[in-house]
Amino acid sequence: MKLLVSLLVVGLLIPAVSTQALAQDDLMDLLNIDSSQVTRYTAATFKAIRIINGHSVETTKAKHLDFVISHRFDRLNKGPSEFFGLDYATLRLGFEYGLNDRLMIGVGRSSIEKTYDFFGKARLLRQSSGARRTPLSVTAFGSLAIDSRTPTQGGEFRQTTDRYVYCGQLLIARKFSDRLSLQISPTVLHRNRIKESFEQNTLVAVGVGGRFKLSKRISLNAEYYFVPGEQLGTKNQRIHHDALAVGFDIETGGHVFQLHFTNSFGMIEKQFIGQTGDAYGGRWQNGDIHWGFNLARTFNLGPRLGNAIR
């Protein structure tokens, strides 16, 4: 009997207490999520998959295809008779595709030396905060460039593999704030055949680059690739130089335009790391500056939204 009475009391109290507690709780409190339990990945370290010439840690989004058109006009110091270089330009057309959000592949064709390039990029580490904290983003990059010129076009090679140039990079970046992101890119470039005997077949280079957002939609980018030591010959021998580029990213609602000035005429690693100078570029101090742009149109090849209102 006593037990039953206490049961009754408890039975009456439990719902009374809990109902009161619920009524007093702010409804909004029931919706709060402990943000330290969630991992937030840093988005948009860079606006595009290239800082300028070289690749950034970003990859094309899953199932998205970018059609990329890039131009570099001739040198500004060609003067008014060549319309400051605008009369002539080199071109790269590319198709670049995100297999998933961490893996992408691409293929391109450059007008310089009629070169086809194939590349892959994998995000190894993504900067994050919250439950799992990662201070840096790291992306691996690998590419193969093939010179497809025929002998009459200047492409005389003893064997097919002489046409190949390989490149491997580790892209390491951190978004320090909304506005500032910096990247360092250790690079190895191997050329099976070189024209100049004083150059090394295998070049070890380092790229440094970054962006600073001037406004929400415009950022100032800069990028410098240097090849230390005498890998490209002694100071007096050198005909190829380090590549420096400065430009702007302009976001135009779903698209990013990249406009820039650079001393390299080429747009792939083989060209801007190993061939800036001579026929394909020059030196900033001599006014060998090429104006150029990258622009991409993005297509979603993945599933569309189901029930979004029309």
Partner: peptide
């Protein structure tokens, strides 16, 4: 009484670049 709360980053766009710009800018 009614309370509603949503995370802006949970909005999914068909164009992921647009999604990034939506959140970033």
């Amino acid at each position: 009484d009614i309370a509603v709360k949503m995370q802006m980053t949970d909005f999914s766009f068909p164009n992921k670049l647009m999604q990034e710009h939506f959140n970033e800018n």
